[in-house]
Every structure is written in structure tokens, then in C-alpha cells.
């Protein structure tokens, strides 16, 4: 009677994360700090995005020892990243018991044409998107949760803002279209028609959409919530800051009370130095992680 890995079970898991912060961690100790601070989940990684940038070379799935260590350290859900199109990394993470898999452009893609057929897995997937076409293609492949791509590891919010605004405005446009205009819009966006039809009827995406890629301060997190994010991923921002536990708490609070400016002012006092940022115009070609997949 009981059915596992259904859409409701996989998408529902992401619904429970709403209004929360998911933090990148590289070991059990960081995972505990994140949990203590009120993170709704952690992303177990070998290196945070800014270190991946600095190290160069090929970035792969984390060593299973790290994923296991993080799972043993906390009771909140543990996510892990697999390379785009790397079916075996995803199956390995699933077998380890990871609660969510991020098919992520932060790692070096294993397939430069195709994403995985994520509907085949019991474990749910999250994927990045820059616009509604990309978002709905990922849902079509079986993603149960979305996030903006932003530009990871830069501490620069501008790309995440661009992606969130674009997706929201494209959703509003789809809602306002008449049914006979929808097929052409599907063609223009490169979006599955049936999903656009569903979005038009329900007035929203069928899965939650978090912000990710460049969030470095409590105010950044609150900004993304105001732009319509269901929650936020913070990658390098926390453990690259001067006082990670204080920083982590402040980001969690700012995400919950994103319209309480007095509180955000209070939270932002004396946080020490945030991660040092990066001007995205310096990035070219392969260094622009967001352009690694379509």
C-alpha cells in the first residue's frame, strides 16, 4: 500500500524546508554549527564554491566519508551535490541515504548536453535555473525543488537577483496569457507546454524555488525572500565569514523576518567581515558556473 518516491513525497519534502536556510558544510563540526543556528538542512560538500573556484581543476561529488560524517552529526536533512548528468554519482549518494541531491553546476558537469532523468529516483532532486524555461525543463526531468543559479562562490547577489526577478516576471506573464498564446510562449521559453498550462492555472510553480548563488549577508537573504524566494541556500557566505555561528544565526533570523528592518539592522551589527566578494564581470567562459548547463 505504501508508495515511496512519489511526486508528493519528493516535492513535499522541499515544502517542509520553506522559509528556511540551507547551509553548505564540509564536515560534521560545521554541520552541527549550522543545525544549532537553525538551518533547515545542510549541503555536504568537499569544498565550498569559493574554494572550488580557487582550487580550479575538476570538481566532483564529495568523498562519501564526508557525506556520512555529516549525516551522523545532525538530525536535520542532509543534501549532497552530484555532477550534472552523472547518473552514478547520484545513485551513490542515494544509496548512502542523502535526503536530497543537488544536480549542480557548481561541480564540473559530467554531461554537457543532458541532465539526468530525475523522475527515476526515490531520492528527490534540486536543480538550478536562470529563467522559467530552464526551471520547467528541470521540473519536466523530475526535479522536485528549484533554486536560482546565481553565481556561486562570488558573494555577489546580482545574478541571483536577476534570475529570481526573471523567473517571477515570466510566471506573471504566463498567468496573464490566454490559452491560445501559451504554445508560442512555450516555444519561446523552451518550456514544456503542459507545465506552463499548470502554472497558468495554479498561479505558481508546482515546486518550491529557493534563492542561491551569491548570498553573503542577512540583508541579502531578506532581499531574496522579498523577491519571492521560498527560502535560501547559503554556500560560502557562512563558513568564510569571520564568526560563522553568529553569522549563521543572523541569516536564519533575517530569512524568517525578512520584512522586519529594525531586526535586520540589529542582526547586521558587529557580524565581523563577510566573505570577500567578487565582481562577476571578471568571470569569463567556464568560470561562469551559471552558463555550464541549459
Amino acid at each position: 500500500m505504501a508508495e515511496r518516491g512519489t511526486d508528493r513525497v519528493k516535492r513535499g519534502m522541499a515544502e517542509m524546508q520553506k522559509g528556511g536556510v540551507i547551509m553548505d558544510v564540509v564536515n560534521g563540526e560545521q554541520a552541527k554549527i549550522a543545525e544549532e543556528a537553525g538551518a533547515v538542512a545542510v549541503m555536504a560538500l568537499e569544498r565550498v564554491p569559493s574554494d572550488i573556484r580557487a582550487a580550479g581543476g575538476v570538481a566532483r561529488m564529495a568523498d562519501p566519508t564526508i557525506v556520512q560524517e555529516v549525516m551522523d552529526a545532525v538530525s536535520i536533512p542532509v543534501m549532497a551535490k552530484a555532477r550534472i548528468g552523472h547518473i552514478v554519482e547520484a545513485r551513490v549518494l542515494e544509496s548512502l541515504g542523502a535526503d536530497y541531491i543537488d544536480e549542480s553546476e557548481v561541480l564540473t558537469p559530467a554531461d554537457d548536453v543532458y541532465h539526468m532523468d530525475k523522475s527515476e529516483y526515490t531520492v528527490p532532486f534540486v536543480c538550478g535555473a536562470r529563467d522559467l524555461g530552464e526551471a520547467t525543463r528541470r521540473i519536466g526531468e523530475g526535479a522536485s525543488m528549484l533554486r536560482t543559479k546565481g553565481e556561486p562562490g562570488t558573494g555577489n547577489i546580482v545574478e541571483a537577483v536577476r534570475h529570481m526577478r526573471l523567473i517571477q516576471s515570466q510566471i506573471r506573464k504566463v498567468i496573464g496569457l490566454s490559452k491560445d498564446e501559451l504554445m508560442t510562449e512555450a516555444k519561446n521559453l523552451g518550456a514544456p507546454y503542459e507545465l506552463l498550462l499548470q502554472i497558468r492555472e495554479e498561479g505558481r510553480l508546482p515546486v518550491v524555488n529557493f534563492a542561491a548563488g551569491g548570498i553573503a549577508t542577512p540583508a541579502d537573504a531578506a532581499l531574496m525572500m522579498q523577491l519571492g524566494a521560498d527560502g535560501v541556500f547559503v554556500g560560502s557566505g557562512i563558513f568564510k565569514s569571520e564568526y560563522p555561528d553568529k553569522f549563521a544565526r543572523a541569516i536564519v533570523e533575517a530569512t524568517t523576518h525578512y520584512e522586519d528592518y529594525e531586526l535586520i539592522a540589529k542582526l547586521s551589527k558587529g557580524l565581523g567581515t563577510a566573505m570577500s566578494g567578487m565582481d562577476i564581470s571578471q568571470l569569463e567562459g567556464f568560470d561562469r558556473m551559471q552558463d555550464r548547463s541549459q
Partner: peptide
């Protein structure tokens, strides 16, 4: 008992 059924892969729906 928290997480009594296990991790996410053990999550399910039923009547």
C-alpha cells in the same frame, strides 16, 4: 520518536 521511519528515501504515502 523523531525520524522514526528513517531518512527521506523511506518517506511514503498511503491511505
Amino acid at each position: 520518536q523523531r525520524n522514526a521511519f528513517g531518512r527521506q528515501r523511506e518517506s511514503f504515502e498511503t491511505e
